[in-house]
C-alpha cells in the first residue's frame, strides 16, 4: 500500500508547499509512490488518515498547539519543511520585540482581533522526525528526503556549511567580490543557491552545529558591518539559535 501523505501549513507564506507543487516534471512519478490525501494549497479533498505529515510554517497562536498535537497523533512521521517550521523563520523576528508593541505595529487598530504569542518552530511543540530547512525548501532536497523515506533509509541533511557546496560549484567567494555572506556558518543543502546566483547567503537554513560565533563576527565586521548590523542580519532567519539570541 502506498504511504498516505499530508501537507499542513501554519504561519508562513506557503512558498514551500508551492515549491512542492512546482515539481511539475516529478509530480506524476511521485504520486505513483505516494497518495497525497491532504494538501489544502493543491486540492479540495482532505483526509485525517495519513502516514507522513509535512508541515510548513511556524507556531504563532495558542490555537495552533492542539492542531499540531492532532497531526502528531495521526501521523507516523512528522517532517517540518522550510525555515518557518524548522526554526521559526522570519516570523521569529517578532520575538525580539515586546509582543503587544509588535502586534499593534503589524495589525494596527485591528490588533485585538489577532491572537498571537512568541513564535516557535514545530519541534518546540511536538516531537519531529526529520526537518527540511530553507526559505524556501530546496525541491531537490525535498525529493531526496521523500525517496529516502520510501526506500526506508534515513534522509541525509548536510551538517556542513554552505561554503562546501559553494566550493564544489566553483564559485568566486562573495568576500572576493566585496559582498557579505553568511555561508561559512549556515547549514548546506541548498546547493549554495544564493552565492551561485550572485547574492550572499542570508542564512535561511539556520546555523551549522558548533558555529564559531566570534570568528564569524570578526569576518562580518571586517567586511564593513557593525556588530549590530551583523546580529540583525542573522536575526532575519536564525534568531531561534542560541548563538544569535544573545
Amino acid at each position: 500500500m502506498k504511504p498516505r501523505v499530508a501537507f499542513f501549513d501554519f504561519a508562513s507564506c506557503e512558498g514551500c508547499q508551492l515549491a512542492v507543487i512546482n515539481l511539475e516534471n516529478e509530480l506524476l512519478d511521485l504520486v505513483s509512490h505516494i497518495d497525497i490525501v491532504n494538501f489544502r494549497e493543491a486540492m479540495t479533498e482532505a483526509s485525517d488518515d495519513y502516514d507522513i505529515a509535512f508541515i510548513e510554517g511556524s507556531v504563532t497562536r495558542e490555537a495552533d498547539i492542539p492542531r499540531l498535537k492532532k497531526i502528531r497523533e495521526n501521523a507516523k512521521l512528522v517532517v517540518p519543511i522550510g525555515a518557518c517550521a524548522c526554526t521559526g523563520g522570519v516570523n521569529f523576528r517578532k520575538n525580539f520585540y515586546e509582543l503587544g508593541e509588535i502586534r499593534n505595529y503589524v495589525y494596527g487598530e485591528s490588533a485585538k482581533y489577532f491572537d498571537t504569542f512568541a513564535t516557535r518552530p514545530v519541534k518546540a511543540v511536538i516531537p519531529v522526525d526529520f526537518e527540511i530547512p530553507g526559505c524556501p525548501i530546496n525541491p531537490k532536497e525535498f525529493l531526496s528526503v521523500v525517496k529516502s523515506l520510501l526506500i526506508g533509509r534515513k534522509p541525509e541533511i548536510p551538517n556542513h556549511p554552505v561554503c562546501v557546496e559553494c566550493k564544489l560549484a566553483g564559485n568566486v567567494c562573495m568576500y572576493d567580490k566585496g559582498e557579505v555572506c553568511l555561508g561559512a556558518v549556515t547549514r548546506a543543502g541548498c546547493g549554495a543557491w544564493c552565492p551561485s546566483n550572485g547574492s550572499g547567503c542570508e542564512g535561511c537554513r539556520g546555523l551549522v552545529d558548533e558555529p564559531n560565533k566570534n570568528s564569524e563576527k570578526e569576518v562580518l565586521t571586517k567586511a564593513g558591518l557593525t556588530v549590530e548590523d551583523a546580529v540583525q542580519k542573522f536575526r532575519i532567519f536564525a534568531g531561534y539559535f542560541e548563538e544569535v539570541k544573545k
Binding site: 556542513h160 556549511p161 561554503c163 562546501v164 566550493k167 564544489l168 567567494c173 555561508g183 561559512a184 556558518v185 558548533e210 558555529p211 564559531n212 566570534n214 570568528s215 564569524e216 569576518v219
Partner: peptide, 13 residues
Amino acid sequence: EERCLACGSCNLV
C-alpha cells in the same frame, strides 16, 4: 581553534 570557522574551504580548494 578561536579563529577557524571549520568551513572546509581550505580542503576543497
